[in-house]
Design a protein around this nucleic acid. Sequence first.
DNA 1: GAAAGGGCCTGGGGGC
DNA 2: TGCCCCCAGGCCCTTT
Length: 307
Amino acid sequence: MPELPEVEVVRRGLARWVVGRGVAEAEVLHERAVRRHAAGAADAVLRMTGADVADAARRGKYLWLPLHREHRVAEALVVHLGMSGQLLVEEPAAPEEKHLRARWRFTDGGHELRFVDQRTFGGIAVVPLVPAPDGGAGGAGEHPDAEWARTLPAPVAHIARDPLDPAFDDDAFALRLRRRATGLKRALLDQTLVSGVGNIYADEALWRAGLHYARRTASLTRAQVADVLAGLREVMTAALAAGGTSFDSLYVNVNGASGYFERSLAVYGRAGGPCRRCEEPVRRDAFMNRSSFTCPRCQPVPRNAHW
DNA sequence: GAAAGGGCCTGGGGGC
DNA sequence: TGCCCCCAGGCCCTTT
């Protein structure tokens, strides 16, 4: 499942293969893939065709390509990969993927960009860029000094910075986290508090911090919040490094958890297996319509848990 | 308006 | 072989 590291790997692929090129033709093959584009597929196609791709930017799990048109960068193509979305850079003659949802051909006649999404939980939209409430995308694009670097796509404006963002404010995060009346993992999955964290890296970071997912956020010490942030940064940085090996590939891969990084996971998907620290069998709980993996010894259930 | 949390989207795979 | 149910998890949307 694409979380921050996987999405950043894709962003880097786009920066290399797509930025600076002109869109000759855009094609939407599945209506559901553009459901977040209010004006419909035809309008989305119209807004992409003839534009130049100015940059490849990211905040949390959202990716976007600011579009240059008539001397302005006022809109962006936003992509969310959802659970199963992939962006592929392919030879125009390459056979169509079974779940191909959208395609872009470029004026140079070179490699095309494809959006493939088995479950269509992801999607694309062309949306206006608005001034960023917190001062910009934080270096997530290739052109931090450009006018558009201080903007965000409208549907992304409410998303918080991620823990790897140099402008992420640890103290402000700790303050907001401890004011919440909720459980720790619920809070970590709230993209308005901290972005880029999904089920997998939340579990991995909590294991590193030795904290249970149902721990009440209000009861956390400053040191424990620091441990959680350190855990998130550690696991995300390692995953990003592992994904880096695919940068040179034409295939802009997003199979992070099921592929190269899977071996490094300490608890996620390892129910019944030995904890890598204490050998206690890893436990799987149903939680928030999904699974949570913990080590019962390293991450004991807290008193006054918030489930 | 903010916060909290339930529910939904889809297709593959396993079990019967 | 075929049908049905379960599962994945991010975020939309309702409720408070």
